[in-house]
Design a protein around this nucleic acid. Structure first.
Length: 488
DNA sequence: CGGCAAGAATTTATATTCTTGCCGGTGCAATAAT
């Protein structure tokens, strides 16, 4: 039996699938050839199967770096449902005793999930070193570039951690990456130059792209309500402010008959989990959310994603609209834009980084830095950079450069909103794809011309692609909640 | 970093100009107190 047949046979036996989805076989083969791999695959193509397959096939332990506790939880649950019990999420949800026990017997697990922050724990690193890691996986690897520099600095340390673990075979997976983000990932992970890149287009042809410019807030609200009355659901609205997210949720409740809930980091873990489950099971028509919502959400029938505020950059935009239409059916992405929105994003971008006054203060007074780092995000960042051995002079340079990059990305986002020609091609160019698509009727709105919702959704069945229709298993979320948070 | 609304100030004003405060996304781990 040749290798290809053997892989298919194993896929059927172990996972019950007859075919690999796009990219999976290429990734698995590359890993089996002992080549570290970066996989940029569209959402819904089963990225996790790649490393699950590798682990089961080679019978070697797989360590997965995951950005969110909820993501780890989902994956662990899914693996257990598939019958794989040797799986653990090594995180702060574990009690001290449980954690110690897991660390003592780490070699009993085939799949170990953890957040990058956990690698700072020496006991954890030591236990991982005892293991013969077959594969190190960086899930949602764009976080390295998007979150590392100013939000979760431990992402910057992954390369060094990887080295300390003996430079194991590595797989980095994400749905979107420009050339710049890809370069960040390979550099920060210190991947060997021989790494293999498996990349598919970011284009999602079944998502119509629209932007509307509105003169003021009042008009924007009215337009939003009128859209909600016309659009087929379920849907998602993104905000860049928790306050406005809450306000609009209430307004929608008052003015429409839609079942709607808000989702943002101001809510407790339990509340967020409940909202998410109600959305997945169809009890909610619509979620108003901040960027907290989305990663790891597997709902296939989202018909529209509206941006009440445009995001900071096109990377985020493509991630967020990519949550629509995973079933391949016609969907739509709409940005409602008001000129003042640009300042909101500018503020957010600038605020996340320490400015030179702050840096100077902290440099002169370590005591001020210490007391501030408990509350201020940027002071904490400075502390972490110091721990990484980065000087104040270098920090100033790094932060300045980062600010410039963020500003440039925001300019591109604005250019997209204002772009009078085919927006799909704008996105393809931004993501450095050579390919140019032919503008079609159901592609995007051009310039200021209006678009016809009825026409867009008229011939739903003509739009097809090979994305799977995998509805999540229905379950009572209250039970899961109880299990997860016994003391809530 | 910039707009905006509310309120204060202003050459005694029912109108304009100036000032102030407000607006603001994403999460890990670990600690401390029960």
């Amino acid at each position: 039996m040749n290798v290809e047949h053997e892989l298919h046979h194993f896929l059927q036996q172990k996972f019950g699938f007859t075919e690999f989805k796009a990219g999976q076989e290429e990734v698995i083969t590359s890993l089996l050839n002992n080549r570290s791999t970066v996989a940029i695959l569209p959402t819904g193509t089963g990225k996790s199967l790649c490393y699950q397959f590798f682990g089961e096939y080679t019978k070697q332990p797989v360590v997965i770096i995951s950005p969110l506790l909820s993501l780890m939880q989902d994956q662990v649950e899914q693996l257990r449902l598939q019958g794989e019990k040797r799986v653990v999420a090594l995180n702060s949800n574990l009690s001290f005793q449980d954690k110690r026990q897991v660390l003592e017997q780490l070699n009993r697990y085939a799949f170990i999930y953890l957040a990058p922050e956990m690698l700072r724990n020496e006991a954890v690193l030591a236990a991982l070193l005892q293991l013969n890691i077959g594969l190190l996986v960086i899930d949602e690897a764009h976080c390295i570039s998007a979150w590392g520099p100013d939000f979760r600095p431990d992402y910057l340390q992954l390369g060094q951690m990887r080295h300390q673990l003996g430079d194991p075979l590595t797989l980095a997976v994400t749905a979107t990456a420009t050339k710049r983000v890809l370069a960040d990932m390979t550099k920060l992970l210190r991947l060997p130059a021989s790494f293999k890149l498996v990349q598919y287009s970011v284009d999602r042809p079944n998502i119509f792209l629209a932007t509307e410019k509105l003169p003021d807030e009042q008009t924007k609200k009215e337009r939003l309500l009128s859209l909600l009355k016309q659009l087929p659901g379920p849907g998602l609205i993104y905000f860049s402010s928790k306050k406005q997210c809450d306000e609009l949720t209430e307004l929608i409740q008052q003015k429409t008959s839609l079942h709607v809930a808000a989702y943002h980091a101001g809510l407790s873990f339990a509340e967020r989990y409940a909202v998410q489950q109600q959305f997945l099971t169809g009890q909610l028509d619509l979620i108003c959310a901040t960027s907290a919502f989305g990663m790891g959400i597997n709902k296939t029938d989202i018909r529209y994603v509206i941006h009440y505020h445009m995001p900071q950059d096109l990377e985020n935009y493509v991630q967020e609209i990519g949550r629509a239409g995973r079933d391949g059916q016609q969907s739509i992405a709409i940005i409602l834009f008001n000129e003042n929105d640009r300042f909101l994003q500018k503020r957010l971008a600038f605020n996340s980084l320490p400015n030179s006054d702050e840096l100077e203060l902290y440099q002169q007074s370590p005591a001020a830095l210490k007391s501030a780092s408990l509350e201020s995000e940027s002071a904490y960042l400075v502390t972490r950079y110091q721990q990484m051995g980065i000087s104040f002079a270098d920090m100033e340079q790094i932060f300045t450069q980062r600010r410039t990059e963020k500003l440039r990305a925001l300019q591109q986002m604005l250019a997209y909103v204002n772009y009078p020609d085919c927006k799909r091609n704008f996105i393809l160019r931004y993501f450095d794809e050579e390919r140019v698509v032919k503008h079609q009727q159901n592609c995007c709105q051009l310039g200021e011309e209006s678009y016809d919702l009825q026409q867009i959704f008229a011939n739903v069945d003509q739009v097809t692609n090979n994305l799977p229709k995998n509805t999540p298993p229905s379950r009572d979320y209250r039970q899961v909640l109880q299990k997860l948070f016994r003391d809530d």
